[in-house]
Amino acid sequence: MAEMQVDVVGVEKKIWSGEASFVSARTVEGSIGILPGHEPLIAQLREAGVVRVDPTDGESFHVAAFGGFLSVTAESVTVLAELAELASEIDVAQAKDDLREAEHYIGESDDQEWRVARDRARARLQAAGESVEQ
């Protein structure tokens, strides 16, 4: 099976790096799945979104990526994010609390910051494998 070099890079450090056979993400224009040999592409990801990576060896995993970009060539995929968290590092209880709080405040005042907080909490939960209604 063909493989490609995948790097998930956050501002402060490289989150993950290795060989993978499949990457899927949501860009501002829609979902995208990338197999090795994809056409070169630079795409902007959703402000808060989930990236799935299927490594060549090992289980597939999810990453919550905020404010990210995707840079694709035939043999490599790079996810650049202002903040990126591996699913295994996400505190599910904390994210649930955040989501509840954000939704509570959105009802009261239609403030942008709470909406961002809600989207972030949702992305975290999705990455961690919890079911969230979108």
């Binding site: 790097d7 890079v9 956050g10 501002v11 402060e12 490289k14 650049l80």
Partner: peptide, 18 residues
């Protein structure tokens, strides 16, 4: 920290140039 943040800066520059 300077070292760890370098990959992001490098990749970002690459994306910008492209």
């Amino acid at each position: 920290r300077v070292e760890a943040s370098r990959p992001y800066a490098d990749e970002f520059t690459h994306v910008l140039k492209t």
